[in-house]
């Protein structure tokens, strides 16, 4: 089997264990967009410290691993203008649709949530179209 797939599976299990710990210990859904979004629009004021702590280690641990040579930094696949447009769409869309790859994908699908499954199918479908169109107009190689 391709080593990338094995690393993907191992990293995936780590992500699932993180989501399991957050669910069973703290009683919360591990959704990246929801956790940071609640800090942005104030809806998460009641548990801001918990959200900020989660985000802080989410940023710090991979940074430390890469600095220690235990992981590779990666290159962007789009120019700054495209990244800003994409960021706006991801921020607006995940708040409007109430979730992203971690909340709807990991936590929703594993619960057989209809909303999570439908959202995941929709964002994968529009993601495929965006990559296809982006390639046709030369946004990425």
């Amino acid at each position: 089997m391709n080593p990338d797939w094995i690393l993907g599976l191992c990293g995936g299990v780590m992500i699932g264990l993180a989501a399991s710990a957050f669910l069973l210990l703290n009683g919360r859904i591990m959704g990246a967009s929801g956790l940071v979004g609640g800090l942005v629009d104030g809806s998460g004021r009641g548990n801001a410290a918990e959200r900020a702590t989660f985000v802080a280690t989410l940023i710090a641990v991979p940074a430390l691993l890469v600095a220690a040579g235990l992981g590779a930094a990666s290159d962007p696949v789009a120019g700054l203008g495209t990244l800003v447009l994409a960021g706006l769409l991801v921020g607006f869309g995940t708040r409007m649709g109430n979730g992203c790859t971690s909340g709807h994908g990991v936590c929703g699908i594993s619960r057989f949530s209809l909303r999570g499954i439908v959202a995941t199918l929709v964002y994968i479908a529009t993601g495929i179209i965006a990559v296809l169109v982006g390639r046709m107009v030369g946004l990425h190689a």
Binding site: L88, G93, I124, T126
Partner: peptide, 8 residues
């Protein structure tokens, strides 16, 4: 919308 930003 999220998917479009994700793909780009």
């Amino acid at each position: 919308l999220f998917g479009v930003g994700w793909g780009l």
